[in-house]
Write a protein that binds this DNA or RNA. Structure first.
Length: 471
RNA sequence: GCUCCGAUGGUGUAGUCCGGCCAAUCAUAUUGCCCUCUCACGGCAAUGACCAGGGUUCGAAUCCCUGUCGGAGCACCA
């Protein structure tokens, strides 16, 4: 099988579907898969030189290593050879009609005069195309199909055209005569021994077009599956390489790994495992209709992978400072993970005031102003201060006192958490300053996050940056 | 306009080829309960779907027709 990306930028989430599915099939059926960059349009789909590696990186993140990698722009001579052969078989002709002219003839099912040229002339003109003797638009090579085919999309389609703009890859920059996708990909699929092709419904007619070429060469066409488009919920930003690229250029996104961008680099930075994405993608199946992928299914798969091994920490968003009273313990020792006592406990010096999320602070005139600070003890709000009341958990177990997370006012770590919907600031418990970048945590009652970096500027203002993973 | 393709709960999916075992599978989401010093994990439960109408048949999610809705192609893009 093959994955044939157009190297126009790093991958968005939707691109993960192809490798996810063919990679999974490879393992299941002991198959083979390659990546083939179909970069045969140096102009309107101009390849981005950095995208080749970016895509391979994304693939690695998903957990796959292709058995082989090709670039169509390295294989022009192969395409030329097959085109010559096709000409000799009487299956192609050079045509100098303008796109419009031809389109009109085609739509009324009429052949253009060039169709009946003798093979010798076609051969010469095609050689001239390869030598770059025509300008863009002057001459194309068409595959002779059936000019009266009931589906106009299949009538005598273009196989090669002239492009004046040099290819960005130096190795391919001298070529001017470029194959169209249907020709290039059709030839390559056979030459590379592809047995099964999966592609989008936008390429529904490709197999039928290419079948004409396969018939001339007496080749057998691979099995084909067409699938619909994937849409993602949860994102403001449209899942489209060009849109994301524009937003980055305009400075509205920080880059391909901005948490607001629906890209693989972004999910990676948020601490989501490639494996979880693959699982969600495989779950979509290969149906022809368009599908909506719920981010929650990626999150569910990821949570499954990380929950057991991820330690717990406190992070208070925004936060109101509340003084403590009544002589509470000097240190709190909540466990690193509730299901794994053996990992030990955190050591949080309490001090004389704490930060709480605004929502968690009881109204002063509420019926019950009691609160249990997780890992510390029971308190009651009195005159704007939290008075230590008990270390007896029964007030939680039997009297339904709310359990909340908190951080000490002293030693708290300023933290900025980057999310899909923008940044959230607040404070984390002291130990968070010592976590290694790339470590995952679960902020209790907030969600999972990946520690990205610890920043400190000249003014001594330290700030830890984390990327929100998911609830 | 011409040509293709599709339609199962909020989402995804199984079942459709070869009609009965489907008062429709599984996952996720939602809600409730249990567990729990988290609204995480785990356990239990509930809600929730065969696009519509005809036809064939003893019997239709499954076969046929029509309609509706949705998608795609008709590029010297991929």
């Amino acid at each position: 099988m093959r994955c044939a990306p157009n190297p126009n930028g790093p991958w968005h989430v939707g691109h993960a579907r192809m490798p996810a599915v063919i990679g999974t099939y490879r393992e299941r059926y002991d198959g083979w898969f390659c990546v083939r960059f179909d970069d045969t349009d140096p102009e309107t789909k101009r390849p981005d030189l950095e995208a080749y590696d970016a895509i391979l990186e994304d693939l690695e993140y998903l957990g796959f290593e292709p058995d082989a990698t090709y670039k169509a722009s390295d294989r022009l001579e192969t395409y030329y050879d097959h085109a010559r052969e096709l000409i000799d078989l009487g299956g192609a002709y050079t045509c100098s009609c303008s796109g419009e002219e031809f389109s009109e003839l085609k739509n009324s099912g009429e052949a253009c005069p060039h169709r009946e040229k003798d093979v010798e002339t076609v051969r010469e003109e095609f050689a001239a195309m390869i030598d770059g003797e025509y300008e863009s638009g002057e001459m194309v090579l068409r595959v002779k199909t059936d000019i009266e085919h009931k589906n106009p999309a299949l009538r005598d389609w273009v196989a090669f055209r002239m492009i004046d703009t040099p290819h960005p890859r130096e190795e391919a920059s001298e070529y001017r005569c470029w194959p169209m996708l249907d020709f290039q990909s059709g030839i390559d699929d056979h030459l590379l021994g592809i047995s099964h092709i999966i592609r989008g419904i936008d390429l529904q007619d490709s197999a039928k077009r290419q079948q004409f070429v396969y018939d001339y060469f007496d080749w057998e066409y691979p099995e084909v599956v067409h699938w619909g488009h994937v849409q993602l919920d949860d994102y403001e930003v449209k899942m489209s390489t060009s849109t994301i690229s524009e937003l980055i250029e305009r400075g509205e996104l920080d880059g391909w790994d901005d948490p607001r961008a629906p890209t693989l680099k972004s999910l990676r930075r948020r601490g989501i495992r490639g494996e979880a994405i693959v699982e969600a993608m495989v779950g979509l199946g290969t149906s022809t209709s368009d599908v909506d992928l719920a981010m929650s299914s990626i999150y569910a798969a990821n949570r499954d992978l990380i929950d057991e091994e991820t330690d717990r920490r406190f992070f208070v968003r925004d936060g109101n400072q509340v003084p403590l009273a009544g002589d509470p313990p000097a240190e709190a020792n909540p466990p690193l993970h509730p299901n794994h006592e053996e990992r030990g406990v955190r050591e949080i010096p309490v001090g004389d005031s704490v930060m709480l999320e605004a929502e968690d602070l009881p109204e002063p005139d509420a019926e019950d102003t009691r609160l249990w600070l997780k890992g510390l003890g029971g308190f009651e709000l009195e005159d704007g201060a939290l008075r230590y009341a008990t270390d007896d958990l029964d007030v939680v177990r039997e009297e339904g006192v709310d359990v909340v997370h908190w951080v000490p006012a002293d030693g708290r770590v300023p933290l900025r958490m980057r999310t899909i919907d923008g940044d959230v600031t607040g404070h984390a418990e002291p130990g968070v300053a010592d976590l290694e970048p790339d470590e995952l945590v679960q902020f209790e009652r907030v969600g999972f996050a990946r520690i990205d970096r610890h920043e400190s500027d000249e003014e001594d203002d330290a700030e830890t940056v984390a990327y929100y993973t998911h609830p």
